[in-house]
Simulated scan of single mutants.
Amino acid sequence: MKLDQSMAAVVTGGASGLGAATARMLAAEGVKVTLFDRNGEQGAQVAKEIGGVFADVDVTDQASVEAGFDAARAAHGQERILVNCAGIAPVGKTTSRGEPHPMDMFEKVISVNLIGSFRCIALASTGISSLDPVTADGGRGVIVSTASVAAFDGQIGQVAYAASKAGVAGMTLPVARDLSKLGIRVMTIAPGIFETPMLLGLSQEVQESLGQQVPFPSRLGRATEYAQLVKSICENDMLNGETIRLDGAIRMAPR
């Protein structure tokens, strides 16, 4: 599917990090972009920079997400592309110091990372299915979600995060199968250690230490490299129903 000015996209978590890089990439290709995020100041700034639209959306709230899609479609028409980047990553062990893992934290992570992603997928795919195909194979659109290498190599203290991201990876194939007759492809990217706002807040020494854990290239991944893979997924019509590790061959140790 060729990216151009005839298309619209929604990027969740688009105010920073992987989402912002993806929004900038899509806009550079002429795509009309709407950003969903809770950070109004940053989201509005990125949207202004790329000539897009910002919507203050909580992916855990059905009405909020529906309103976000309504705003996106009012501004740009029905989207053909959804990129799910919204996510949180709190740390907590199954049991620690005589206390069980806080269940409200576990439920919140699942609600944002897994259920939030599926909520957006369900709403976007329903809209995309109404569009005419734009490829010779009958393709109507593309959905890309974000998992993590933690889905496969979850570390100590990552039980909630790993479970949520494993769920994102696990639903990729069945959702792709669900949407196959509608001409909507579904892919997931599982990034390794990337230059996200959280990691960039660490000292340079710590960032370099983390980067050295990556076999090659021995550095943190760049948000633009995530965006580059999103572009490839959009443009390569045979990419469907798979989770791609984008991690420099790292396999995470227990801690």
Rank of each mutant, 00 (worst) to 15 (best):
V186N: 01
G201W: 07
A28F: 12
L131W: 04
I115L: 10
S148M: 01
E29G: 02
T95W: 06
G167Y: 10
R177E: 14
V175G: 05
S145K: 02
Q42G: 09
G141L: 05
A21N: 04
A71E: 10
S96V: 05
K2V: 06
L199D: 11
L220K: 10
V31M: 08
V142R: 02
Q204L: 10
G68C: 03
E208G: 09
V134L: 01
D58T: 04
L26S: 07
Y226P: 03
D137I: 09
G139M: 07
A176W: 02
L35I: 15
G183E: 00
L131S: 07
A67Q: 12
Q155C: 02
P217N: 08
V31Y: 02
R219K: 13
E66R: 06
S96E: 14
M187T: 09
R251P: 02
L229P: 02
A23K: 00
A44S: 14
V109T: 13
T34G: 05
S117M: 11
Q204I: 11
P133G: 09
E195P: 06
V31D: 06
A136T: 08
M238Q: 10
F216W: 15
T94I: 15
G52V: 07
T22H: 04
A136D: 15
L239Q: 03
V33I: 07
M198I: 15
E66L: 09
D132V: 12
V46E: 05
D178V: 01
R185N: 07
A166W: 03
M25V: 12
G170A: 08
V31W: 05
A136L: 06
G170K: 08
S232R: 11
G77A: 12
H101F: 15
I128V: 12
A89C: 03
R73Q: 14
A20T: 11
S209K: 13
P102Y: 11
S203A: 08
V109I: 05
L26V: 04
G183W: 03
A86D: 06
